[in-house]
Write a protein that binds this DNA or RNA. Structure first.
Lengths: 208, 208
DNA sequence: TAGATTGTTAATCGATTAACAATC
DNA sequence: TAGATTGTTAATCGATTAACAATC
């Protein structure tokens, strides 16, 4: 299969969200034109994006909402179940563990890890907080798919060193640093402070 | 001033982060070539990006780290102070309010808002939780710059309606929906579930 | 069948990379 | 001055949009 550009991959979850809403509203079919108006993109882009994965539509009709929704879901890997652990049981880590919609999509947060003895042993949303020294063993025995890193950058860098040698397949990085990991490990960064800086860039731009 | 492409704006905070680290390590000067190797981008891109804002370097020498750091900081609006309120005092909202590095950059979270009477009146990191019915009044009287929305999508949509008529200048949206707001309000979306879907897209891609 | 809308090719636009003259 | 490295123009690459034949 040909390589899909990251621009397309970034847009897929948004299509999925809109299709989800259309389903909730019992809409059966939609054309690229209607969808383009809802989403504020061009109809051309929608058709191009979808045709990277095959022809989901029908000439003269458009797209069947449920079918397209399910197909994009499959592409996004939502038919599988994923085991996730969160390293760093601070506010952000707890927020992830408590997030109710993740389970619905097959994202199971099965444990949290921390180094603080005061938190170790507690339960967050039926999820135990374990000592971070047992992280790698846990990953191997429970076949963890994704590790979320919600801790300060220095500690994230240290944990990443261990993860590099483990069987984990993907890292969801909230620490404010780039992690040095082998190519076979997928890294998705969420840098909140960078997001905030993009806001203040635009705010100060407006003042000129 | 000519319009800067969003691709460039997205990269600026990362430059800033690397320059921050170089300063911490007492590095005085750096060439685009060295920086490109550190950051895994082309030297050409670095020079192109920076030259959108003016010539910060010197032929034969490179860039003075402190000077470049400060200039990018100015571009990102970090010389100003910002008043931020968080609407939705759940785990994620509390995580933002507790985040220690924001203040250092001039980001001041001055209040949280919620509709839950059990939380209203509590203090999170010296920051009071107020009743969301007073949100708009508060924004006007305290001249709030940025509102972070950390609540379920239905409620976020409702709050956005009020914000559209307020004097707030930017919204940091963590709700899983696109907000319908006038063009003069800046919106920065952080869709965590979409970020997670990009991971599982890549995971399931690997399996083929 | 006629109308609508896709799938897909071709044209355009913009972003990235390469190259090199300017200059510290 | 010679060497290094920027600032900037030109070339390339990729992504988006437009157009339209295919077809339901």
């Amino acid at each position: 299969m040909k390589k899909i550009s990251s621009a397309v991959v970034k847009r897929l979850p948004r299509y999925y969200r809109y299709l989800d809403e259309l389903m909730e509203n019992n809409v059966e079919r939609i054309s690229s034109g209607e969808l383009s108006r809802m989403m504020n993109v061009t109809a051309s882009q929608i058709r191009q994006d979808l045709n990277n994965f095959g022809g989901f539509g029908q000439q003269g009709y458009g797209y069947n909402v449920k079918h397209l929704h399910d197909e994009i879901g499959k592409i996004l890997g939502l038919e599988s179940e994923y085991r996730i652990v969160v390293v760093g049981a601070g506010n952000l880590g707890q927020a992830l563990a408590n997030y109710p919609n993740f389970v619905r999509r097959g994202y199971h947060i099965i444990a949290l890890f921390d180094k603080n003895p005061e938190i170790i042993g507690k339960k967050i949303n039926e999820c135990e907080v374990l000592d971070v020294v047992h992280l790698v063993d846990y990953i191997e025995s429970k076949k963890v798919d994704i590790v979320a890193l919600t801790l300060p950058k220095e500690q994230a860098t240290l944990v990443a060193k261990d993860l590099a040698k483990s069987s984990v397949r993907a890292i969801w990085n909230f620490a404010h640093t780039d992690l040095d990991l082998p190519d076979n490990i997928i890294v998705e960064n969420v840098h909140l402070s960078e997001s905030l800086m993009r806001i203040t860039y635009k705010l100060s731009e407006l003042e000129d």
